[in-house]
Nucleic acid binder design. Structure first.
Length: 149
DNA sequence: AACGTACACTTAT
DNA sequence: ATAAGTGTACGTT
């Protein structure tokens, strides 16, 4: 099946998604939108609904590699909570530094919620503006508090 | 194929 | 505050 691209709004940014059916191949953030739609789940997530995007399928978690193991561990982190690089490392049999690398190269943010992984002593980093990581976390926190919205 | 360097970190001085 | 330790990837020999 052919991969289609689309975007949807998230706060000040646009989320670009390349996907087909229930499989998401690539996600990235941008200041500008592109034509086309995104999976309904992602649309609703961006609108503030409390839902776990890890139910979406992505090739990145199917490989038999260290990164895939890490990504699967990251997907276990529930909406609105956070984990640390160290914890993910322990859970996937590697080292924190590697987790950082995996996050930095994450092809599908949101689907693999790398924004929920923070440093032991602070928020840690983010490839796109750190602002986005903070916005996502505070949105999730807010969503939990309110129940749904 | 080996080698050096770079990392979105951590833990121990 | 600083440094040593960590596992993997990537570019350069």
């Amino acid at each position: 099946m052919e991969i289609i691209g689309g975007s949807c709004r998230f706060g000040l940014w646009f989320v670009h998604v390349w996907w087909n059916d229930k499989t998401v191949h690539r996600v990235r953030f941008s200041r500008t939108g592109i034509p086309g739609g995104v999976p309904e789940l992602i649309q609703r997530y961006c609108a503030g609904h409390v839902l776990n995007l890890s139910q979406l399928d992505t090739p990145a978690i199917r490989e038999d590699t260290v990164y895939s193991r890490i990504y699967r561990a990251v997907q276990q982190v529930p909406y609105g909570s956070t984990s640390t690089y160290g914890e993910i490392a322990a859970g996937s049999g590697t080292s924190p530094r590697v987790v950082g690398q995996a996050m930095a190269r994450n092809p599908v943010p949101l689907v693999i919620p790398c924004h929920r992984i923070v440093a032991a002593g602070g928020i840690g980093g983010f490839s796109s503006p750190l602002e986005i990581k903070e916005a996502l976390l505070s949105m999730e926190k807010k969503g939990l508090r309110k129940g749904v919205k």
